[in-house]
C-alpha cells in the first residue's frame, strides 16, 4: 500500500487534490481512497488529507501515520506543523516551493506549483489553482500514470490551461 499525506491550508484545494489523485489511481486500475481530515472548516487553517493506493481493497479508515509521500501545498505550514511526523525512513517529500526548499534526511522534490499556476493566470477566487500542476508533478513521481493524470484533468476541468499547468509541473520536477 502506498500512503500519501497532503498538507495544505483550507481553501487551497487540498481536499479536491486528494480526490483527484485517488481518482487517477482508480483509473490506473488500483484501489484508492481519499480522506479529508475535517474539523471546523476554516479558510487559511492548516488542513490534512490522506490518500491510500493499493492493489487490494483498502480496509483502513484511520489516519495515515507512516506516509510514503508527504505533499506540502503551502510551505509556510512547515513552521506550524511537523509535516515529517511519522514519515517512513525512505519516505519522500514534495513541496510547493518557489525557493527550492529541501528537508533533511528525505528525498525532496521542490516544485513551484504556485508559480506555474500564476504564470498561466489559473486563479480561482483569488487563489492560484494548485491541483492540476500537482497532478502533473505526482505523475512524474510514478504514483499515478501520465495517461490517468491527463484523463482526470480533462474530465474535471474545462479550461485547457490546466493541462498545460500539469505538463509544466511534470517538466519542472527533477527526479
Amino acid at each position: 500500500m502506498f500512503e500519501i499525506r497532503l498538507h495544505s491550508r483550507g481553501g487551497q484545494g487540498g481536499v479536491t487534490a486528494a480526490k483527484l489523485i485517488a481518482y487517477a489511481a482508480f483509473l490506473d486500475g488500483k484501489y484508492a481512497t481519499a480522506t479529508p481530515l475535517y474539523g471546523a472548516e476554516r479558510r487559511g487553517a492548516p488542513v490534512v488529507s490522506f490518500i491510500r493506493i493499493d492493489d487490494e481493497p483498502i480496509r483502513i479508515y484511520s489516519q495515515i501515520r507512516n506516509p510514503d509521500l508527504v505533499i506540502v501545498l503551502d510551505e509556510s505550514i512547515m513552521q506550524l506543523v511537523d509535516v515529517l511526523h511519522g514519515i517512513k525512513p525512505d519516505g519522500e517529500v514534495l513541496i510547493n516551493s518557489q525557493k527550492g526548499t529541501e528537508v533533511e534526511g528525505h528525498r525532496t522534490y521542490p516544485v513551484d506549483l504556485t508559480g506555474i499556476s500564476l504564470a498561466l493566470d489559473l486563479v480561482l477566487a483569488g487563489n492560484p489553482i494548485l491541483n492540476t500542476p500537482l497532478i502533473g508533478a505526482i505523475s512524474k513521481l510514478g504514483v499515478i500514470s501520465q495517461a490517468s493524470a491527463k484523463q482526470v484533468i480533462a474530465e474535471t476541468f474545462r479550461d485547457e490551461r490546466n493541462v498545460e499547468a500539469a505538463l509544466r509541473a511534470y517538466e519542472e520536477l527533477k527526479i
Binding site: T33, T35, Y61
Partner: peptide, 12 residues
Amino acid sequence: LDGFLLTHITQT
C-alpha cells in the same frame, strides 16, 4: 454510515 469516515471518504 459513519459520519466523515464513510460519508466523506472517496472509494471505488
